[in-house]
Computed example of a mutant assay.
Amino acid sequence: MVRTAIAIAVLLLSGGGALAQGGDAALGETVFKKCMSCHAAGEGATNKVGPVLTGVVGRAAGTYEGFNYSQAMKDAGAGGLVWTPENLAQFLAKPRDFVKGTKMSFAGLAKPEDAMNVIAYLASLSPPPAQ
């Protein structure tokens, strides 16, 4: 866990706000297959056990319409948590450590590069951030 946190910190410091651009969306789509048992993304996606992840980059946590989030995730969003590439990287490494009380049962992506690639894939399905 410490090595993963250090690797993410190094990636964040080296990539800054361009974290999603540092990943490979095509590789991320492949890694995203691990997520597909609970999440959907892309045109026509619907909520499953987890919320739709189309447009997640830049969205406030716990706000996708029609999904029944944990109170912890709703509170995180109400408290200002937005799914930036940096926040997603931390969440994808250890979801239950990043949002205590989340319903997400996935333990996390062990490799920081997998997280970066998934974030790049999800960013490709998200509108560009407002300037």
Rank of each mutant, 00 (worst) to 15 (best):
L92K: 01
G58D: 04
V57H: 00
G16A: 05
D24C: 03
L12C: 06
K33W: 04
L122K: 03
K48G: 14
N117G: 01
A76P: 05
M73A: 15
E86T: 11
N68P: 11
Q71I: 04
A115M: 05
A72F: 10
T63S: 15
P129Q: 09
G108K: 07
G77L: 05
G80A: 09
G58C: 06
D24T: 01
V57E: 01
P85G: 08
P129N: 03
S124R: 05
A60L: 09
A41Q: 07
G28C: 02
A110F: 02
V2K: 13
R96C: 00
S126T: 06
S14Y: 13
V57N: 00
V52D: 04
G62A: 08
R96G: 08
L109V: 04
P85F: 09
L13F: 13
G50H: 02
G15P: 00
V82T: 15
A18F: 10
A130C: 01
S105V: 13
N87M: 07
W83E: 09
G42Y: 09
T46M: 11
A20C: 09
A120K: 00
T84F: 01
G44A: 09
I8K: 11
Q131A: 14
S14V: 15
Q131M: 05
V56F: 05
G101I: 06
A78Q: 12
F98C: 01
C38Y: 08
N87F: 10
Q21E: 15
F91T: 09
